[in-house]
Design a protein around this nucleic acid. Structure first.
Lengths: 352, 352
DNA sequence: ACATTGTTGTGGAACGTTCCACAACTGTTT
DNA sequence: AAACAGTTGTGGAACGTTCCACAACAATGT
């Protein structure tokens, strides 16, 4: 098993194939009776060898199970063809869809994707990013708002970077592609107003950029569209308590909100659960709008009305921008994409 | 921006640092006034240089922003320190948790993880696997039952492989670590019987190995524990139709099942939705048990009773087995881990 | 005085590939 | 016949590292 058959041994000056080692370009060259250069040309499909010899070489290579060594190749070429994508959290449909978009565009551009996994932990995220850079990626797509801006700026100087999502503050030297949260928020609020709601609350469980944008847009809209009505904006602190209080209000008080625009589907799902536990009838007593249009929307009852982001498109854009950077663009570029509302069962006119 | 400041230029025989290029070990050596070998020893923390010179070298390296080139290193060492993990589907909490386990064990064993993403597509899965091998991984963890056995066997000859999950048929040369579906099924069925159920159905939406094991174990158990009762086993064909029919039965017929053990949480969620849509009261009219203990369990109402698999533990085991293989073990090894039931609101005694 | 041993350091040869300058042919044009 | 151009192929020098054999020197024992 570990010995190579005696028949393939050779006594030529360049040592024969070592037993148990992977075949190299030399082995193929020797077996085919040509130079290593010829083999190199043949496997890369470059001109410089005749059609006949190319075929011959390819056959031998196939037979020997030869596979070119990426490391040696990129060592001499000075490029790896690798690009990294840093995810905050696998197991999140948003990230999966963005990744799928990046992947599709990557094969298009003849780049290979290496996934880094940060696991909602800033320390780990940075370690993972370092590790990607050590691997020699030529660019990085970051799908996370957990990377500190000053670190981001440092990375941006070493390698092209595109961030998918909002940044807490602008960072020079890197590109971004983001969902236009203010448009998503507007669609949600306008939908609720059209249904006849006037007392609308917002529920958020985070102070990160995307959440803050949705929240800001919500307040702004309420001020403009329903002047005189005090815009109810809950939390971010103690989401659970905020939900309990909100449900309590709706059960007990006149003038309580009749609709809630939530920061994302997770928060919406918690609110749906708490409402049902408290015996509220949905959507009659409370309309709920989520954000993300994740797979849970269709699992819940009532099925969740939610704002959909064109995730895989965002991923595609991100990779295209990265590839532009790699091939020379130097000025920063920021793209935003409009989301759109998917109406399901969790929104209805308020009880008159 | 692209010029290096004139002051750093040098005329020593070994050409000075090239503008715009990343610094190499030579550059550091030159700047520190030592040989490249000394630098190599210093950065790898090996003995052979005095503490004083090591510190000096490390300072210079830091200053120059030197980072060792992984490609060159692994070219000469003949090993990459990379191991691949092939996922069927990012954005799935099961895969995320297994991956987390593998990752933790990987840093432990000083290996770096490269994630490959198959996207529920056998063709793509294989391409991804090839790409991992081309990258030079020293072993592969496969979390997917979509890879054909004969292909698996071929891969197993090239590189150590551990499969997390069930295989449709045994494959020699590769290891597996699996959840003991028959134990999970038993816990679910015994729980339902204890509650007083006798008419129990099984609902499955797939013919893949894990699903078939759960189904087989279910039938077997019902035969043994409730002899005389005809074990109801639904589909896999047309899951949606099966769900509709099941719900119809429960509404209309005496002798319909009072409890359902489902293949996984997704199927359970669909069943919960359809039941509620049909006006059934849960869990009074129907008890439901899921499998996977995913995050949706706590989002649904009633909250879902489900079988939990020790996922990250499975990932850990997988990597440890892989690492054993890499360092020499040749005989196959198959490990199974017992799951356990998490009882929530979706199971209750049947109406008497 | 001479071995012996240990520490600190060196320069050259790998590793497997691509790139480059050039050689050996075969035609074609002057 | 000489000059030129095109095709096919070659061997050696990179690429940035680690590994290895050995050198220089100091400390120790006989």
């Amino acid at each position: 098993m570990t010995h190579s058959p005696a028949g393939t041994e050779t006594l030529l000056p360049g040592r024969g194939r070592r037993a148990g080692r992977k075949p190299t370009i030399h082995d193929v060259a020797e077996a085919a009776g040509v130079s290593k250069s010829a083999v190199s040309l043949a496997i890369r499909n470059q001109r410089g060898v005749s059609e006949a010899t190319r075929e011959h070489i390819l056959n031998i290579a196939q037979e020997l199970g030869y596979r070119s060594n990426v490391w040696a190749r990129s060592l001499v070429q000075g490029r790896t063809g690798l690009i990294g994508i840093l995810l905050q959290d696998l197991g999140n449909s948003y990230h999966r869809d963005v990744t799928a978009g990046v992947e599709d565009a990557a094969v298009e551009n003849d780049l290979r994707l290496v996934i880094g996994h940060g696991r909602r932990d800033a320390k780990r995220l940075q370690a993972e990013l370092d590790s990607l850079l050590a691997l020699g990626v030529e660019g990085v797509v970051i799908v996370s708002s957990w990377v500190p801006p000053q670190y981001l700026e440092k990375i941006g100087k070493r390698v092209p970077v595109v961030v998918v999502g909002r940044l807490p503050e602008p960072v020079s030297g890197i590109d971004t592609v983001a969902n236009r949260d203010e448009i998503g928020a507007r669609q949600a609020v306008e939908h609720l107003i059209e249904l006849g709601h006037t007392r609308i609350a917002h529920l958020t469980g985070s102070a990160r950029p995307a959440a803050m944008h949705r929240r800001g847009a919500f307040s702004e809209l309420m001020r403009r569209l329903l002047p005189g009505v005090d815009p109810q904006v809950e939390g971010p602190e103690q989401l659970e308590a905020a939900i309990r209080y909100l449900v309590f209000q709706i059960q007990e008080e006149k003038g309580a909100p009749t609709a809630v625009f939530t920061q994302n589907d997770r928060v919406a799902a918690d609110l749906v659960g708490a409402s049902l536990d408290a015996g509220l009838r949905l959507p009659e007593q409370l309309s709920i709008v989520g954000y993300d249009n994740s797979s849970v929307c269709r699992m819940l009852r009532p099925q969740l009305t939610s704002v959909d982001q064109p995730r895989s498109r965002m991923g595609q854009m991100a990779l295209e921008m990265l590839s532009e950077r790699i091939t020379g663009r130097t000025e920063d570029k920021h793209v935003t994409i409009a989301p759109n509302l998917v109406v399901r069962e969790s929104t209805a006119p308020p009880r008159s």
